[in-house]
Design a protein around this nucleic acid. Structure first.
Lengths: 218, 218
DNA sequence: AAGAGATTAGACTCGATAGTCTAATTCTGG
DNA sequence: CCAGAATTAGACTATCGAGTCTAATCTCTT
């Protein structure tokens, strides 16, 4: 009687293969241009199986965004939970800079390499036609990571390692947005013909230095 | 013998109407979903006329991006040519902040209100399929405005009104990117349910203050 | 007023694609 | 080994859109 939820039936290996193929094709072609036939072929699966697992093209797309986001979010949350030293152990300002460089570098890498960036563009351009998409993206991604980063930065301010105006601390997630904005936009400017790795490190450092220049205790 | 270039023939009033309609429909539907039929209908023009003027759907889309960009770029260039006071007349630091607020506010308004923002998203998502698009967008927009803004900010640094490390000054357009990044990303977070005007001013001010906090002479 | 160029409505071709259906086959757990 | 679930290939429907073509009309300019 109780119909099994379509997300929970079928062979999980095939399900995985479909998600992978769908990510590839959606990212290469865009949502509209991507055909379910092409995805099924790429996954070595029949079209009907795709529909069995995900209902329709929209359901498939949302499942893809969830999967790709989850991977990055796990990485980022772990980074902040275990990859950042206790403020008490940061003695000199050089320590702080090094720790921020590492954190920001890994964060930025998780966001701007791999499939996440491009998928975000896709979601952005499709959001007008699938209103729930933008909300879902936010709740599943930035809605989880930014408050965590902001908490971490706020603790640094409370510990006296950063000198941040109360007006900034009072705005939800502002500090986190400022740090990621200043590195993210710079990293996004990297052109294909450049040496990505070298540019990446330089630009993350630039962003962190800009941030520190503004909020370093004098 | 010499065929007239398709961009230069036909009734300019109709041409304008088509460009307007195309902007509306492309922005509402996205490139792929937008149909030439819908655009022609919206412009009160026959489909054939659209093809007479712009050749094909791609040509139409590029003409639209050019037109929308040109409008904003003119505004922004004018702003910097005539809307910013001579550094010599800026005596107190309050003067500098006020001038930067005005400039950055108008710049940001030109970029993040109206059709430019959304068109940019569209270009971004279509760029994979029309490689010349990204380059054209850059050359026609940021390629013109950023060097100009950077020159202006560099003059402020030379005049002693900003204290910017040489390493930053040495990077092409970096200073300009930092200023616009820090305001732009914050403004982009404004949610539809918020009071746009109030949020806009606050966020531009935040960005300028962040920038000044980093580069204000001590 | 005449003629050239521009515009029009609408039919038409050609190719894609979302989603359904079916009958046959393959997996898999008990 | 067997029964029910999952999968498969492929045909099929229905829709939609880019671009072309045509014959008739319109609008200037001279």
């Amino acid at each position: 009687m109780t119909a099994t939820a379509p997300e929970l039936q079928g062979n999980p290996r095939k399900r995985r293969a479909i998600l992978d193929a769908a990510a590839t094709v959606f990212l290469r072609e865009g949502f509209t241009r991507a055909s379910v036939d092409a995805i099924a072929a790429d996954a070595n699966v029949s079209k009907q199986t795709v529909y069995n697992h995900f209902g329709d093209k929209n359901g498939l797309f949302m499942a893809v965004t969830d999967a790709v986001q989850d991977e990055a979010v796990l990485r980022i949350m772990d980074l902040m939970d275990t990859g950042f030293p206790d403020p008490a152990t940061l003695t000199g300002p050089g320590d702080l800079r090094a720790a921020l460089l590492r954190l920001t570098g890994e964060w930025t890498r998780a966001v701007y390499t791999g499939r996440l960036v491009d998928l975000r563009k896709l979601v952005d351009s499709e959001a007008e036609h699938h209103p729930e998409l933008r909300e879902r993206w936010f709740a599943n991604g930035p809605g989880r990571t930014y408050p965590r980063l902001n908490r971490l930065l706020t603790e640094l301010a409370r510990a006296g390692l950063l000198d941040v105006p109360d007006a900034v601390l009072a705005e939800p997630d502002l500090l986190a947005h400022q740090l990621t904005a200043v590195t993210g936009t710079d990293v996004r400017q990297i052109r294909p013909e450049m040496d990505f790795e070298a540019e990446f490190d330089r630009r993350v450092a630039r962003g962190v230095d800009f941030f520190l220049r503004a909020y370093e205790p004098r």
